[in-house]
Design a protein around this nucleic acid. Structure first.
Lengths: 154, 154
DNA sequence: TATTGTTATACTCTATAACTATA
DNA sequence: TATAGTTATAGAGTATAACAATA
């Protein structure tokens, strides 16, 4: 009845449904849905540092590091010294990583098709926009940033 | 640009943002965001079996069982024999579980407020509807149900 | 001093498969 | 035969805190 109460659960249910079908589909390629997101993030922006990668996924730097260790062992990802900042390391897909990414992207094609097939073109565009607004609202909330003007009665 | 490509990542980003702010907010109450979903599911439907609970969350029965073991240890949940089916066990909140649920529900109030504050009332309603369509589309995909009419070129 | 990344550590969630007991 | 739940097991993701090296 009340969108305010239902939105969080609806968001969770939709994401979990996507996550599970993706994991199932990607399993035969040996990558998880989250690993695919990491690969996809690397595929679109090159030579990111680990922190940049974490920020874009989005995820936690130490979580990303754990994932990178796994992917590096399997030769899908490589980490090199940063050209100008010796603290940092750049992360990039290896040749094998690029191939794997394209493979899994194709494997996920029908999942994405199925997803938008339940929507009109306009609904799909609208949904993406609304999801971004929601994500942004949480990002504004998440940092230390005390409860400023967000106090509510009830 | 292309909603079909962006929708999965936008959905993930929005959910993760919500999940992280929720975990952070609920931490002082000693429950995770996922545990809260379980408590909330029990709070609205009484005397569910474990399978019903898993189906509604939604989640995997064995995942739910692991969560129940944790929550039972802490006295928030109790499992009893099913009145008519001796295989099954009914799950319900204890008194302490009900209190905890209400506590955490209140703690999450401002998160939910913040979430809908980024949307008009109509957008919020629309978003819930679209998320359900998306979740449904994945549910149709998820079971064994081979690739029937979902084949696509590209 | 602040920042990047590493290390150590711990816990939750997730899921499969083999199994027991009951329907 | 099918279903509800348990057990054992494994791995992935998540995150915090202390630390080293560099900016």
């Amino acid at each position: 009845m009340d969108p305010k109460s239902e939105l969080p659960l609806a968001l969770r249910a939709a994401y979990h449904a996507l996550h599970r079908t993706s994991d199932a589909r990607f399993a035969e390629h040996g990558v998880t849905a989250d690993q695919f997101v990491l690969l996809a993030t690397l595929a679109r922006g090159d030579a990111l540092t680990q922190r940049e990668l974490a920020a874009r996924m989005p995820s936690d730097p130490s979580t990303v590091r754990a994932m990178l260790v796994l992917l590096e062992k399997r030769g899908l990802v490589e980490r090199n010294t940063h050209p100008t900042d010796n603290r940092a390391r750049t992360v990039a897909l290896t040749k094998a990583g690029q191939q794997k990414y394209q493979q899994v992207w194709k494997a996920g094609q029908s999942i994405r098709e199925q997803m938008v097939s339940s929507l009109t073109a306009q609904e799909a565009r609208s949904l993406v926009k609304l999801l971004r607004q929601v994500a942004q609202s949480q990002a504004d909330n998440s940092p230390v940033m005390a409860t400023a003007s967000t106090e509510t009665g009830n």
